[in-house]
Design a protein around this nucleic acid. Structure first.
Lengths: 148, 148
DNA sequence: TTGCTCCTCACGTCACGTGAGGTGGC
DNA sequence: TTGCTCCTCACGTCACGTGAGGTGGC
């Protein structure tokens, strides 16, 4: 009888690609250009293995890229800020961090989130404008149908 | 003294590119692959000239492409439906169109608008979800700052 | 006539897609 | 051992960017 799901060694690239909705080629390409860290150590030619955290990071990255329509260079910058934020989070959770240092960490995190939020909000407003225009045209067509 | 702005012959490709926020190369490329109609007649080597209507169509096309993140093939399909709708509008405004024909025209227009609206709404919801997640993270960071 | 923008090739680039040929792990 | 997925080149493609060299209209 199998033990209750041993903490599995890691996901293979094909599985990762499927769950995040992309292709292995894309994941390898992102690693190649340094957008993603090189998935764990491995000897040349061996399979890449990914953790659940890797999957989450990739999913977030792809979502930002798709929804904001940024280039991989721009995406890289966004992710690097994200990485810096993760490091700060690690430092945060350690013991003996002075209060003013903690304030600095939070301030940096806030700045980063604000920048991302601004990009996202701008996009949302653009989409909303388009949606309103289409809805208005739809309403005009419907009105004409009533008038028949 | 110059007359009050004679109905100018047309806009050149550089002007068009600037007002819609793209490049001449992109406009020529779209014409080359048949995404846009070949801007008015002209002998080979002569300047392309665009009307205000051309500008509007291009602006709409670029906005759909950017905000929906579709490929040029997908965009082409959306625009062809748009073109069919324009033809129907022309037929609509002519005299002596039977009432049931008019109803068909409006029904087709409605279907086209509904398809576009569905794409746009899905995108808006995705963006809104991302925005809420980011806003929630921001709120947590702010709360921690208060607690210091 | 002088600038400026335009023109048409045509090669370069970004972000992958797609085999080719071969090795690795349930 | 048999499949399957994985691996690394490496060339192809999509959507343009970027000169090169030349012509056209205020």
């Amino acid at each position: 009888m199998s033990a209750s799901a041993a903490p599995h060694a890691g996901l293979r690239i094909g599985e990762v690609a499927q769950v995040v909705g992309t292709t292995p080629r894309t994941i390898r390409y992102y690693e190649e250009i340094g957008l993603l860290p090189p998935a764990a150590e491995r000897e040349a030619g061996r399979h890449r293995l990914y953790s659940e955290r890797d999957v989450e990071r990739l999913r977030d990255a792809l979502r930002l890229k798709e929804l904001l329509g940024v280039s991989l260079d721009e995406l890289k910058e966004l992710l690097e800020a994200e990485g810096a934020r993760a490091e700060l989070r690690d430092e945060w959770s350690r013991e003996g961090v002075a209060a003013d240092r903690r304030r600095d960490i939070l301030t940096a995190a806030l700045g980063h989130l604000d920048r991302q939020l601004e990009l996202v909000r701008r996009r949302r407003r653009e989409i909303e404008t388009l949606e309103r225009e289409l809805a208005a045209r739809r309403a005009r067509v419907r009105r004409r149908m009533q008038e028949l």
